[in-house]
Design a protein around this nucleic acid. Structure first.
Lengths: 163, 163
DNA sequence: AAATACACTACTATAACGGTAGTATTTCTC
DNA sequence: GAGAAATACTACCGTTATAGTAGTGTATTT
């Protein structure tokens, strides 16, 4: 049970945008792919879904790039995950209008429903602002302690598979 | 983000065994596949993992079949899911010895960690006994209300994909 | 005009999913 | 001992998703 890189990369892309929103200038995928060490050509595809969902706006041409579609605090991790992966729906019968006649009595279904609810709840708790700002703070602390060089990407480099 | 049928079917298989453990006789896959409307040849494969994990014991030959490896209350949904799908590990860097240098500061990682923990927590809360007994009770009530015919499978027939 | 960046479409290799199928072996029953 | 019924083991297979790569076109700035 692994998460797809689509969701991970998309989230990293969005957090990067949030992190550098202060520049008030479009940020190119080239920059993101270099700084975050992600495949440029792949990001190009992933960002389409984010744009469709209104999570980013694009600026074409030279000096173009992407900016957040709305304030970082108004974009939740859940928005990004759902835009990139589709709705979090573990089972068919967890959909609102599932035709199963045991919907309301099936204990397994209730169990999976609880799990699904918890997943979406937590994802909805974290905004891009939370994710970028608290990383920012942690980075500062760790820098003061001499742990990690400043400016390094604070998002995990870990993929979902190849270490 | 859909769950695999492996996990769903395996859980239904195990709940069926728990449900009929009172018979004190091995239960064949043929019976389970018929009663639960699951592909026999597929169950044959799934049960291998369950047996390897010690969740079921097999009895060969005529009148053979499978029985629970231990008491229903001592087998958690988590056991079944992990036996059939492997460990619930959303990200590489959530593994205990991940080499990521940002392990402890990465907020995304903490967020996914919380989600993963909640998943395993809930799965660990439910034993086969819980899953089968409460369904039993619900079935009884619904039968009294004239809702569903007795003896019908109480586990959702819903697959993870084709409705 | 050139450079830069998004936009769109197509292609591809690999793996996982969700099975089906054949055959061998064990064991019970008659 | 001959079936019948069951697990055991192995191989195969079509479809889909994943994780990209690649080519080309278009908009915009300098």
């Amino acid at each position: 049970m692994k998460l797809s890189t689509r969701a991970i990369y998309s989230l990293r892309l969005m957090i990067y945008l949030a992190d550098h929103a202060g520049r008030n200038t479009p940020i190119s995928l080239k920059e993101i792919s270099q700084e975050q060490n992600l495949p440029f050509r792949y990001l190009e595809q992933l960002v389409v879904a984010l744009k469709t969902a209104g999570l980013v706006k694009s600026v074409q041409g030279k000096q173009g790039g992407y900016i957040l579609g709305r304030d970082a605090q108004d974009i939740k991790a859940l928005d990004v995950v759902e835009a990139s992966m589709g709705h979090v729906e573990l089972l068919k019968c967890l959909e609102p209008d599932a035709p199963c006649s045991f919907r309301d009595v099936c204990t397994s279904r209730r169990m999976w429903g609880m799990i699904q609810t918890r997943i979406t709840d937590i994802l909805a708790e974290y905004s891009l602002k939370d994710l970028s700002e608290s990383d920012m703070k942690a980075r500062l602390e760790q820098t003061l302690l001499g742990g990690v060089e400043t400016g390094a990407a604070m998002i995990c480099d870990c993929r979902s598979e190849s270490s």
